[in-house]
């Protein structure tokens, strides 16, 4: 891995708010750890501790990203997390003029569309697989999302 790629990876991880990320592939092994109680404002690039083994193949931050997303913290106790099935851009409404598909307090059932994730001009309506009440929307409209990134917390009905 090149120094620049390691920097990009650290930037990416600090933006996710994860405490610790371990990534290991055939080519390299990297561990990024954030010092607890640190606020986002305090120099994120300097904070994480990095240990990287040399890599024969270059690896882009985009490839490392899904690994990082899988390590996302567990959902609040008793709730179900609806996660993004793909990398892309999150949209909370069918089009810019209309209102959100769902908001906090709404009930959903399997098959209900909860959001759109757009990837490479493919617009994907994401359907709920669970029944329950939306207790939290974890991403903002038009925000980039990773594979498996938590999108909604649902209190099962």
């Amino acid at each position: 891995m090149k120094a620049k790629e390691i920097r990009d990876l650290i930037d990416f991880i600090s933006a996710t708010g994860l405490e610790e990320v371990n990534i290991e592939t055939e080519e390299f092994k990297i561990k990024v750890k954030r010092t607890p109680n640190q606020t986002a404002a305090s120099a994120p690039a300097a904070a994480p501790v990095v240990a990287a083994a040399p890599a024969p193949q270059p690896s882009t931050p985009a490839q490392a990203a899904p690994e990082a997303a899988k390590a996302a913290p567990a959902a609040d106790a008793g709730t179900i997390t609806i996660k993004s099935p793909m990398i892309g851009t999150f949209y909370d409404s069918p089009n810019p003029e209309s209102g959100a598909f769902i908001k906090v307090g709404d009930m959903v059932k399997p098959g209900d569309t909860v959001c759109i994730v757009e990837a490479m001009k493919l617009f994907n309506e994401i359907e709920s697989e669970v029944s329950g009440k939306i207790v939290k929307v974890l991403v903002e409209n038009a925000q980039p999302v990773e594979f498996d990134q938590p999108l909604f917390l649902v209190e099962p009905a």
Binding site: P85, M86, P110, G111, T113, K121, L122, F123, N124, E125, I126, E127, E129
Partner: peptide, 15 residues
């Protein structure tokens, strides 16, 4: 131009 719209539950249902 092409515009593909899909619906996804745990798999791709329609495109």
């Amino acid at each position: 131009g092409v515009l593909i719209e899909s619906s996804i539950s745990n798999q791709v249902d329609e495109a």
